[in-house]
C-alpha cells in the first residue's frame, strides 16, 4: 500500500498559513526547519526506509542512522517514527523479520524487504510527484488586503523581498560550506525562493493595475 507523503507539522502548516510562527515574526516562517520540510522533503518515510533495505537487511537503529545521514540534515527521524513505520510495512507485507538478536540487551529485529516491497519502491520512484501549484498564496492575499485597506503594498513587497534574500544568503552560505548533498538540498530551496522573488518583482511592477482591479 502506498505511503502517505510526509507533511509539515500542524504548527509549521499553521505558521505558513497565517504568516506567523510561534514568536509571531515573519522570518520564523522561512527558517530551514520549517521551509525545508515543506519543499525539500515532502517524502514518504516508508518508501525511503524500504529503499534503504534494498541493499540488505538492517536493524531499525541502522535504518534511522542511514536515513538521518542521507536525508535528515534538518529533521532527523525519531526512533518512534522508525518503529511505527516498520510495523506498518510489516503488516502490509512489504518487509519481513529476517532475524531477532538480543546480545544481552533488548531484542532487536532485523528487517528485510520483500518482493512486494521492491515492487512498491519501484512504483513510487517511477511515479512523478504532483507539481505543487501554490495557488493559495498568503503573499497574494496580503498584497490584495494592503490595497483594499489603503496600506502600502509596495512596502510589503519590499520587506518580503528583503526577507527572502536574507534566507537565500543563509542557504548560499550553507551551500558554500557544505558537501554535495547540502548543495543540492539548498539549491532546491534556493530555486523555490527565487521563484517567489520573481513573483514579488512582477507583482511590484503590476501594483497599479492590480489596485484598479481590487480597489476601483
Amino acid at each position: 500500500m502506498p505511503e502517505a507523503p510526509r507533511r509539515p507539522t500542524p504548527q509549521a502548516r499553521g505558521a505558513l498559513e497565517t504568516g506567523t510562527a510561534g514568536q509571531g515574526h515573519l522570518s520564523d516562517v522561512y527558517t530551514c526547519r520549517v521551509y525545508t520540510p515543506c519543499t525539500v522533503l515532502p517524502m514518504s518515510i516508508g518508501h525511503t526506509l524500504l529503499g534503504l533495505l534494498e541493499s540488505g537487511p538492517r536493524h531499525g537503529y541502522d535504518l534511522k542512522r542511514t536515513f538521518d545521514e542521507k536525508f535528515g540534515q534538518d529533521r532527523p527521524l525519531h526512533y518512534g517514527q522508525v518503529y511505527s513505520t516498520m510495523s506498518r510495512l510489516l503488516k502490509n507485507g512489504l518487509v519481513e523479520v529476517d532475524g531477532v538478536e538480543s546480545e544481552g540487551g533488548p531484542e532487536r529485529k532485523r528487517y528485510a524487504i520483500t518482493d512486494a516491497g521492491i515492487t512498491d519502491v519501484s512504483r513510487w520512484l517511477m511515479q512523478p510527484e504532483k507539481p505543487e501549484p501554490y495557488l493559495q498564496s498568503t503573499l497574494y492575499t496580503k498584497v490584495v488586503l494592503a490595497l483594499l485597506t489603503d496600506r502600502s503594498a509596495s512596502d510589503l513587497l519590499d520587506s518580503q523581498r528583503s526577507e527572502h534574500l536574507r534566507m537565500m544568503r543563509i542557504l548560499t552560505d550553507r551551500k558554500r560550506k557544505g558537501d554535495l548533498a547540502d548543495q543540492l538540498i539548498c539549491d532546491h530551496a534556493l530555486f523555490h525562493l527565487e521563484a517567489d522573488l520573481r513573483w514579488l518583482e512582477l507583482t511590484a511592477a503590476r501594483l497599479g493595475q492590480l489596485a484598479k482591479v481590487v480597489a476601483p
Binding site: D158, R161, M168, R169, T172
Partner: peptide, 23 residues
C-alpha cells in the same frame, strides 16, 4: 538575479532612480 545577489552581505534596491537599503 537573486541567486547571484545571495552571495552579497547586503542588497540595495534601485527603483525609479532611488536606492533603497531596507536593512
Amino acid at each position: 538575479e537573486a541567486r547571484v545577489a545571495a552571495y552579497s552581505d547586503r542588497d540595495v534596491t534601485v527603483r525609479d532612480g532611488r536606492a533603497r537599503d531596507l536593512e
